[in-house]
Deep mutational scan, measured.
Amino acid sequence: GKELVLALYDYQEKSPREVTMKKGDILTLLNSTNKDWWKVEVNDRQGFVPAAYVKKL
């Protein structure tokens, strides 16, 4: 099944490779191999968020 993460904080994208999320959002985790930036999918968009801003559910 898909792995989900919870947004712990708001995050505003700073580049086209990133995505914006709001605290409390549930996101689909696509890739967590990089310890600093995790790739997630939110609202049919894929991009990176800081790993410290999310936690695995």
Rank of each mutant, 00 (worst) to 15 (best):
G1D: 13
G1C: 15
G1H: 14
G1E: 12
G1Y: 14
G1V: 14
K2A: 11
K2F: 13
E3K: 09
E3C: 15
E3Y: 11
E3M: 14
E3W: 13
E3L: 12
E3T: 14
E3F: 11
E3A: 12
L4H: 09
L4G: 03
L4R: 10
V5D: 01
V5S: 03
V5Y: 09
L6K: 08
L6S: 05
L6G: 02
L6R: 09
L6F: 09
A7D: 00
A7E: 00
A7K: 01
L8N: 02
L8G: 02
L8I: 10
L8K: 05
L8S: 03
L8Y: 04
L8M: 09
Y9P: 00
Y9W: 11
Y9M: 12
Y9E: 10
D10W: 04
D10F: 05
D10Q: 04
Y11R: 03
Y11E: 00
Y11T: 01
Y11F: 08
Q12S: 11
Q12K: 14
Q12E: 15
Q12W: 13
E13W: 06
E13P: 14
E13C: 13
K14D: 06
K14T: 12
S15P: 05
S15E: 09
S15I: 05
S15F: 06
S15G: 13
S15M: 07
S15A: 09
S15C: 10
S15Y: 07
P16R: 10
P16T: 10
P16D: 12
P16S: 12
P16N: 10
P16G: 10
P16F: 09
P16I: 10
P16M: 09
R17M: 13
R17Y: 13
R17E: 13
E18C: 07
E18A: 07
E18P: 05
E18T: 09
V19F: 14
V19K: 02
V19P: 01
V19L: 15
V19E: 00
V19G: 02
T20F: 05
T20C: 06
M21F: 11
M21Q: 01
M21C: 06
M21S: 00
K22R: 13
K22W: 10
K22I: 08
K22M: 09
K22G: 05
K22N: 08
K23I: 06
K23G: 05
K23R: 11
K23S: 07
K23D: 02
K23T: 06
K23W: 03
G24N: 06
G24E: 02
D25M: 15
D25R: 03
D25Y: 05
D25H: 06
D25K: 04
I26T: 06
I26S: 03
I26H: 05
I26F: 06
L27F: 07
L27Y: 11
L27S: 02
T28K: 11
T28H: 09
T28Q: 11
T28S: 09
L29N: 00
L29E: 00
L29D: 00
L29S: 02
L30G: 01
L30Q: 04
L30H: 05
L30F: 04
L30N: 02
L30A: 03
L30T: 05
N31A: 10
N31F: 07
N31I: 08
N31V: 08
N31D: 15
N31K: 07
N31C: 13
S32T: 09
S32L: 05
S32Y: 08
T33C: 13
T33P: 04
T33W: 09
T33I: 09
N34S: 10
N34A: 09
N34L: 09
K35N: 13
K35T: 11
K35R: 12
K35Y: 08
D36H: 15
D36K: 14
D36E: 12
D36A: 12
D36P: 03
D36N: 14
D36V: 15
D36I: 15
W37R: 03
W37Q: 03
W37E: 03
W37H: 03
W37G: 01
W37S: 02
W38E: 01
W38P: 01
W38R: 02
W38N: 01
W38M: 04
W38S: 03
K39Q: 13
K39P: 01
K39H: 10
K39C: 13
V40Y: 01
V40R: 00
V40I: 08
V40H: 00
V40A: 02
V40K: 00
V40F: 00
V40M: 02
E41A: 11
E41H: 07
V42S: 15
V42I: 15
V42T: 15
V42W: 08
V42C: 11
V42R: 15
N43L: 13
N43W: 11
N43P: 12
N43H: 14
N43C: 13
D44P: 07
D44I: 06
D44H: 12
D44F: 10
D44W: 08
D44T: 11
D44M: 11
D44A: 10
D44L: 10
D44Y: 10
R45M: 07
R45D: 04
R45C: 06
Q46N: 09
Q46P: 06
Q46T: 12
G47M: 05
G47K: 02
G47Y: 05
G47D: 00
G47T: 02
G47F: 08
G47P: 00
F48I: 07
F48C: 12
F48Y: 15
F48R: 03
V49D: 01
V49P: 00
V49Y: 01
P50D: 01
P50N: 02
P50C: 04
P50I: 02
P50Q: 02
P50V: 02
A51S: 13
A51I: 03
A51T: 06
A51R: 13
A51W: 02
A51Q: 06
A52G: 11
A52Q: 11
A52H: 12
A52C: 15
A52R: 15
Y53A: 11
Y53M: 12
V54S: 01
V54T: 04
V54C: 14
V54K: 01
V54A: 03
K55L: 13
K55Y: 11
K55P: 01
K55T: 14
K56Y: 10
K56D: 04
K56A: 08
K56S: 08
L57Q: 04
L57M: 10
L57E: 04
L57N: 03
L57K: 04
L57F: 09
